[in-house]
Structures are given as C-alpha cells and as structure tokens.
Nucleic acid binder design. Sequence first.
DNA 1: AAAAAACTTTAGCCATGGCAAAACCTGAAG
DNA 2: CTTCAGGTTTTGCCATGGCTAAAGTTTTTT
Lengths: 148, 148
Amino acid sequence: MTETKADTRPDRRAAAFARIRDAHQTEVAEDYVELIDDLIAERGEARLVDVSAHMGVTHATAAKIIARLKREGLVLNRPYRSIFLTEDGTRMANMARQRHRVVFDFLRAIGIDRETAEADSEGMEHHASDQTLAAMERLTAEILNRRT
Amino acid sequence: MTETKADTRPDRRAAAFARIRDAHQTEVAEDYVELIDDLIAERGEARLVDVSAHMGVTHATAAKIIARLKREGLVLNRPYRSIFLTEDGTRMANMARQRHRVVFDFLRAIGIDRETAEADSEGMEHHASDQTLAAMERLTAEILNRRT
DNA sequence: AAAAAACTTTAGCCATGGCAAAACCTGAAG
DNA sequence: CTTCAGGTTTTGCCATGGCTAAAGTTTTTT
Ligand SMILES: [Mn+2]
Ligand SMILES: [Mn+2]
Ligand SMILES: [Mn+2]
Ligand SMILES: [Mn+2]
C-alpha cells in the first residue's frame, strides 16, 4: 500500500490536449459572436446571409450553428428576423475581440504582413493563455517603443 | 454593367476561417503521428493503450483515429500488434515536431513557464504560418543572445 | 396586388471525434 | 496446458459542423 499512486500520471501531455479539445469547443462560438457583434456595429444588424458569407460557409451551416448559440444563451432571434447577442454573448464577443487584437497586434509588431497576421491570429487567439497574452502585449509595446 | 463586381468580396475573413477549418482537419493527425513517433523512440514501440493514455482519450477513440490515419496512409499496423508510421507518417511527424519546437522555444524565450508553454504550443503550432514561425525563430535567437 | 428576388428554415446526408460496453485475442502465470 | 489479466477491436450511441436541396417568408420590383 501507500503505493505513491505510482502510475496515476495520465501524463502532462494529456492535460494539454484536453485543454485544446476544450478550446475547440468554444472556438466556433467565439468567432461567431465576435462577427455578429462586428456586423451589428458596422451595419446596424446581423443577418444570417452576412454571417455565412463572412464565415465562408453555407447559410444552412450558419443557421445550424446559430441555433446552437441560441440554445446556449449567447444569441437571440425571432424567425426570419435578424440576430442579436445576449448579455453573455456580448461579453464573450468583447473578450474574444480583445484577445484577437492582442495576438494580431503582436504578429504585426514582429513584422508579419497584414494578411498573414489576420489568418494566423484567427487561429492562434484561441490557444494563447492569459500568461502568453500578457507577454505578447509587453513585447508588442517594447518593440514599438524601441522604434522611437 | 461593369459593376466592379461590387459585392463579390466573400470577405478576406472568410479565407482565414477556411484556413483554420483546414488546419483543424490535419491537426489531430499531426499530434497523433508525432506522439507515435515519440513513443517508438522512447520505448521501442507504440501501443494503442499508450497512445490513448498520452492523448487523454479512451482507447476506443484512439483506435478509431488510428484507423483513419491508416486509411490515409500515415500509419501501419496488424491486428493486435503495435503501431508503425509510414514514410509519409514519419515525414509528417518530423515536420510537426519541428514546428512544435519552434513555438515552444519561443514561448519559453519570452518567459512563459514550462507547463503553460507546453499547453499553448500544443494548440498554437497548428495555426502559425511559415512566416510567423520564421519570425519566432529569429526573435528567440535574438532574445537568447541579448542575455549574454 | 402579383410576381420575382432574396433570405431563412428545415430536412437529410456525411465525416470526425468523443464515450461506454461487449466481444475478442495474446501472453504470462499458474 | 489452462487460466486470466491486459490489450485490442467492434458496436452503438451522441454532438458538432460541413454540404445540397427543398420549402417557406419577407421584401422588392413591376
Ligand atoms: Mn476572433
Ligand atoms: Mn478565431
Ligand atoms: Mn505537436
Ligand atoms: Mn498540437
């Protein structure tokens, strides 16, 4: 006995992968609410057709995803009308946008071109911990300052 | 007429999202072949039971994924025997490992702690373009040098 | 007010990656 | 040479996010 629970180490790696599967769960939601929020800001309302165009999927796919978001309390919408965010949805959109910006600005600061930075940040944003985001912010400021 | 193809811009964003959906397609394959390669190096063979433990999923899930990889020509295995990589699988493992290292080393260089760097790099590696990887390598070297 | 266009909903299909449970081999111990 | 413990395979189930195609509404044009 005592045993030190010898082999109960599911491996540190397993934990990392679990986190990633988790991130993938929320990733789609984050990108959609962020886009919906943008559309509302830019053109007053978010229509399904615009959401699907911006995400690059068919309207059927977007509809299904929005149904999920509604079920999860992130968006609201009445049939055939445009899409709104709940409080929770708005909160998520703002957090997502901020993280997105941090990563994007960082990539730009280290010399990545606009297009590539847009593509890379869209994916990386969901996998950067708070610690990493903070480091990126610090570095971005540092680099921009050095260019007096 | 002429029309400037006014609204045919599916939006640059759509392209970024398409790339991410693409990355998610290959992501699982990359992580599995990398792990299988590691296991073979470390302990001579890769058993299903170890793969599933390290990935933190049930053996049933791992079996299904390995079946997919086999179908796609990345791994080989005879029933009830251990798992091998094909040439293609080995190639993919090596490229994945290298990208992984670049991202991990970079995170460590900017001061992220080991555990967090492991978790973050496991996700970010799949979304960093060659351009970004190059910049990370450059920055890593620079930072390490400055610490004369 | 009718007709046409545009948009949304719904249905049905597929692939992937989760899980639990059962059936099936293999290799060590006995 | 049996037994049985530990791996492996297989079977079903579920959720998500893709797609096409068909139906239903709303909005715009004529
Ligand atoms: Mn985003
Ligand atoms: Mn994103
Ligand atoms: Mn990896
Ligand atoms: Mn990974």
